[in-house]
């Protein structure tokens, strides 16, 4: 049977879990028709006259539905059914990782809607609306250039998410200083120092996104621990991009990370990528067999003996 399939296609949006009734275009409600879903015939139990009734629809029922006149198999109506959900309240976050140039806002929906969602963002500062330049690669993100800095007036950002099934919005308000959060420090390197079995030299660089290190110097927070111990040791450094750890356990591999913060405002960055290093250790000497026997016994004992250390910095280290 040749089906005539020339017909303009319509779209019908339906919320997940609801009942859907599809009309066969302008055909008489009592006429005899056949419905197909993606070319599969649907049995008569779904029909109410010429209308197709689908109960408690789920995502798998999205697709193309076609209605043919019962006897002539002439395509009378075609509709694309899209099943999904209206957007829930979007999660919105604004942050300045390149202060004082500007800040970006990014957002996401807490759960998928299976629909094309569109977003509208408005930013108000000092009773004026400020443009938010869409960030081309990142769909759900836009960038705001600071026109004024050191302002005590709050920023108010409203984001509305919309799709054919509904819309939802979120509003946040913040002041300029509170959203300053640098990116983590970069190029973190940790190296042993020759002839210093208790020392490690750590160096790093400013995050490349931080525009003006001279006028907006960062302070840094270093944390380090031997792999065999869970307790981190911390040291805060008010400037400079290097540090020597002077109380490392001899011969133990260390894991080290660094974070950054503007000296006066905002919050700490996330931790940098972790780096590993082991303090310098004496090369074993080439000895005769007899001496070697004695040496081995001594060496094996010292390997597990924790070298006397300076007063532990944290009270709870005293027990180790």
């Amino acid at each position: 049977v040749q089906r005539h399939s020339q017909q303009e296609s319509h779209v019908h949006y339906a919320q997940l879990g609801t009942d859907v009734t599809l009309q066969c275009g302008s055909v008489d409600p009592e006429a005899t028709v056949t419905w197909t879903a993606n070319t599969t015939d649907l049995d008569a139990s779904h029909l109410n006259g010429s209308r197709l009734v689908l109960h408690n629809v789920d995502l798998s029922q999205s697709g193309q539905y076609s209605c043919y006149e019962g006897t002539s198999w002439h395509l009378k109506y075609r509709v694309n059914l899209k099943v999904g959900t209206p957007p829930k309240e979007p999660v919105l976050m604004c942050r300045s990782n390149n202060y004082p140039n500007g800040f970006y806002c990014s957002w996401h929906l807490p759960s998928p809607t299976y629909m094309n969602d569109t977003y509208d963002i408005t930013i108000i500062h000092d009773s004026k609306e400020i443009a938010c330049k869409k960030d081309i690669p990142a769909k759900n993100r836009c960038y705001i250039q600071y026109h004024q800095v050191f302002s005590s007036k709050k920023y108010r950002v409203t984001l509305t998410a919309t799709n054919p099934l509904g819309s939802s919005s979120t509003t946040i308000s913040f002041d300029e200083f509170s959203i300053v959060k640098p990116d983590p420090p970069e190029s973190v390197v940790a190296k042993p120092i020759a002839h210093n079995p208790r020392r490690l030299q750590v160096t790093w660089q400013y995050p490349s996104s931080w525009p003006d290190p001279d006028s907006f110097p960062l302070k840094f927070f270093l944390r380090y621990r031997p792999l065999i111990i869970d307790q981190w040791q911390h040291v805060e450094l008010s400037d400079g991009t290097s540090h020597i750890i002077t109380d490392a356990y001899a011969g133990k591999e260390y894991i080290i990370q660094v974070a950054a913060k503007d000296n006066e405002i905002g919050t700490w960055s996330d931790w940098s990528v972790a780096v590993h290093a082991t303090p310098w250790t004496e090369e074993p000497k080439h000895l005769t067999t007899e001496a070697q026997g004695t040496e081995t016994t001594t060496a094996s004992t010292s390997a597990f003996m924790v070298a006397p250390t300076a007063r532990p910095s944290d009270p709870d280290d005293a027990g180790n």
């Binding site: 001279d214 805060e236 450094l237 020597i244 002077t246 006066e264």
Partner: peptide, 28 residues
């Protein structure tokens, strides 16, 4: 906090009137 040692070469610019910067931080 762990024991620490500063490497030479802290940024020269911040030597500029360090006491005034300390005063400002205290004021802040």
């Amino acid at each position: 906090m762990a024991s620490t040692e500063r490497l030479p070469g802290a940024s020269q610019h911040h030597e500029f009137c360090r006491p005034t910067l300390y005063l400002l931080r205290k004021m802040r």
